[in-house]
């Protein structure tokens, strides 16, 4: 049991996260809180940690969807645009409906977000399967189209969302005034559901099968097209969830929201061990991948490094993480091969 836990792909990431976190705690120094008078570590404090989780949550939630797509052998570049469109449409719908009670506002808002995201995913999936064009091309196209739609319908204005949404997204849930753990909890929930889906359900297993070998899946009677379409629905839906929380948290939605997120999202999935050739990946690891990226960003701030180096460091770290992961699996394959030959 312990051995299988250690060998799981998430274990390495957890170790890296803890190591980096410990180093930061040691070198960050501390300050004295002006209100309580207690000494507070500059890194290891509730505020910084939750802030990091909030930053990571957007990438992590969409990263789970992206992981599904990547495991199936595809890619989804449109999630950033779906994020923007879902947020903008929701904000416009709520503005159009006028003031309502909190429960209606939240439920209509969430439903709108998810619906928009669902149809965006459907459009991606239908085109990938129906036109037989590589998902990179299709979603590159929809990335621009969907963001363009968001621009056109919102006239590129920032639209405020009702306070009810912000109250939900920023709810402190008894942690005290300035702490808002809702994005963190949403992230954990999505990662948990994603893990359950991938490891325990029939559909999850089918996603791995299609990504591992589409032809053999067809020969085993799997409905390959339906499975390929399905993952884009999930990817869209996770962007909808992220958009709902994001718009609520920041109090407004704009057509330029989430620009460039697709790359962070894919990076999270890939740092989490998802293979772009398909058949391999984990929802939990995608979340850990997002946390690692955010932690590296935080490290730059905590250590007072020049912020201009942020992208260089993140890029280097991503390549490094993936190479490390790959050489690890090559080593494993070699060991397995030697074992079969000697037996």
């Amino acid at each position: 049991m312990h051995r299988s836990l250690l060998r799981s792909p998430s274990a390495g990431l957890v170790i890296v996260l803890l190591a980096l976190g410990s180093i930061l705690t040691l070198v960050a120094g501390s300050h004295v809180d002006p209100v309580s008078g207690a000494t507070v570590n500059n890194f290891l404090n509730a505020h910084t940690l939750i802030q990091m989780a909030t930053d990571a949550s957007t990438f992590a939630i969409m990263g789970v969807g992206a992981t599904l797509v990547i495991i199936s052998g595809g890619i989804d570049l449109s999630v950033g645009a779906v994020y923007a469109l879902a947020g903008v449409v929701m904000a416009m719908v709520l503005r159009g409906l006028g003031p309502m009670d909190a429960v209606s506002t939240v439920s209509i808002g969430l439903a709108t977000c998810l619906m928009v995201a669902f149809f965006c995913g459907l459009a991606n999936g239908v085109m990938v399967v129906g036109l037989g064009v590589h998902p990179f091309i299709i979603t590159l196209g929809t990335m621009w189209i969907l963001r363009g739609v968001a621009f056109v319908i919102s006239h590129a204005e920032s639209i405020l969302v009702p306070a009810a949404l912000t109250n939900v997204a920023k709810a402190s849930l008894g942690l005290g005034g300035s702490l808002s753990p809702v994005p963190l909890l949403a992230m954990l929930a999505v990662a948990g559901l994603g893990t359950l889906y991938l490891t325990r359900t029939v559909m999850g297993r089918h996603v791995f099968a299609v990504g591992g070998n589409a032809e053999a899946s067809r020969f085993s009677g799997l409905r390959v097209n339906r499975i390929r379409l399905g993952v884009f629905l999930w990817s869209g839906l996770t962007a909808g969830v992220a958009a709902f929380i994001g718009a609520g948290f920041y109090g407004s939605a704009t057509s330029s929201d989430g620009t460039g997120y697709e790359l962070y999202v894919i990076a999270s999935a890939v740092v989490g061990g998802a293979s772009l050739t398909g058949g391999k990946g984990s929802a939990l690891s995608a979340m850990l991948g997002a946390l690692l990226i955010v932690l590296i960003r935080q490290a730059i701030r905590t250590l007072h490094l020049d912020q201009n180096y942020e992208w260089i460091i993140i890029g280097t770290a991503m390549i490094f993480a993936v190479v490390l992961d790959q050489s690890g699996s090559k080593l494993l394959a070699k060991r397995l091969m030697n074992r079969t030959v000697s037996s």
Partner: peptide, 25 residues
């Protein structure tokens, strides 16, 4: 075969639906 999967998973792939309750295997 789907070489990236476990031996067990390959054996049950075509009939996984029959082994599931509410889509959970």
């Amino acid at each position: 075969l789907i070489l990236s999967m476990l031996a067990r998973e390959n054996t049950t792939l075509p009939i996984l639906e029959r082994l599931a309750r509410l889509t959970f295997v």
